[in-house]
Amino acid sequence: MLLQLNNIFKWVNSGGQRIFLLKDINLQVEEGEFISVMGPSGSGKSTLLNVIGMLDTFDEGEYHFLDESVHTLKEKHRANLYKEYIGFVFQSYHLLDELTVQENLEMPLLYKKYKGAERKAMVADMLDRFNIVGKKDLFPAQLSGGQQQLVGVARALIANPKLILADEPTGNLNSQQSEEIMELFKKLNQEDGVTIIQVTHSEKNAAYGSRIVNLLDGRKV
């Protein structure tokens, strides 16, 4: 078992009223799964992903990740946990405009204790695996959306995470580019055993996964 959510509640108070963003979520994810989270806009998909990614807190319930009880951990410890095991992919790529492809890939490694030579080797490996060696000195603005997302995925993978969290990774891409990214995910999942949780609106993309979680108004349905 990779992670387990038990009776997770998350809410915000607004005008004396409690608005639930997540309501009684129970979810168990095994290593090697490929899960698609679906639901209408505003149903809490991103919120759920952020909770799983430990970027956001929740108000009630338990969260176990590997052997750790996330809900009891201190902020710093939590950060170390996701730094080590989780990679993030975003709808709008979130590459740094001022950095080249190569530098964008290297960036997460700077915050983990890798030596310069090690970092170089890991970046070179990624450039190779994703077939973007020729683009290594370009800036994000010089790439197409599909290429940018490719770099985004490569960046998420570079430190060998166990889990990839992807929030609408193909939301800004055309269908051909989408397909490429989905194929990549499938390959990573099947060949490298990376666990993937993705948010998507498309049935076709969801079908790449092994399981679908549906959300409505913060509830699993």
Binding site: G53, L55, K76, A79, Y82, K83, F88, H94, L95, L96, E98, M107, P108, L110, Y111, K112, R155, A159
Partner: peptide, 16 residues
């Protein structure tokens, strides 16, 4: 802010 957010998600600590 955006850059800082991305870096944080990529593992940058506050001292970093």
């Amino acid at each position: 802010t955006k850059e800082i957010g991305i870096r944080k998600i990529m593992g940058a600590s506050i001292p970093n």
